[in-house]
Simulated scan of single mutants.
Amino acid sequence: MSTPTPGSTPTQQLVDAGVSIWLDDLSRARIASGNLADLISSRNVSGVTTNPSIFQAAIGNQNDDSYDAPLAALAEGGADVDAAIFELTTTDVRDAADIFRGVFDATGGVDGRVSIEVSPDLAHDTDATVAEAEKLWAKVDRPNALIKIPATKAGLPAITAVIGAGISVNVTLIFSLERYAEVIDAYLAGLEQAKAAGHDLSGIHSVASFFVSRVDTEVDKRLSAFESEDAEALKSRAGLANARLAYELFEQQFATARAQELISAGANVQRPLWASTGVKDPALPDTLYVTELVAPGTVNTMPEKTLEATFDHGVITGDTVTGAYEDAHLVFSQLAELGVDINDVTQTLEDEGVAKFIASWQDLKKTVAEALATAPETSR
Rank of each mutant, 00 (worst) to 15 (best):
S228E: 02
E227Y: 00
N144W: 08
W137M: 02
F175G: 05
D111A: 14
E192W: 03
G109R: 15
S206I: 12
V110P: 05
S119D: 15
R214C: 02
L122F: 09
K153W: 14
I163Q: 00
E182H: 13
H124T: 12
F210Y: 08
L177R: 14
R214Y: 02
L191Y: 12
H205K: 15
I149R: 12
R101K: 14
F210E: 05
K139I: 00
D127R: 11
A165V: 05
L188T: 05
L136F: 04
A97W: 02
T107P: 13
F211R: 09
K153A: 12
E218C: 01
S236C: 02
D125V: 12
A208V: 10
G166T: 07
W137V: 00
I174Q: 05
T217F: 07
E182I: 07
V140M: 08
L223T: 04
D111I: 14
K221L: 10
L234S: 01
Y187P: 01
L173S: 06
S115M: 09
G166A: 08
L146V: 08
V171D: 05
A133S: 14
E134M: 11
A186M: 09
L136V: 00
D105A: 14
V215D: 00
F100Q: 08
E134G: 03
L146E: 06
D141Q: 04
N144F: 11
A161H: 06
V171P: 01
A96K: 10
E178Q: 12
Q193S: 11
F211W: 09
T172C: 10
L146S: 03
P120M: 15
V169Y: 03
K221E: 05
E132M: 14
A233K: 10
R179D: 02
S209M: 08
V114K: 14
K139Y: 00
S213A: 14
D200I: 06
G108R: 13
F226R: 07
Y180K: 13
A233N: 12
V103N: 11
L201D: 03
A131G: 01
L188F: 04
E232R: 15
V110E: 13
A158C: 13
G164R: 09
D220L: 12
P157I: 11
A128K: 15
I149Y: 06
S202W: 08
D127S: 12
V215H: 03
G102V: 09
Y180I: 07
R179Q: 10
D95N: 14
I159E: 01
F100W: 14
I163G: 01
D95K: 15
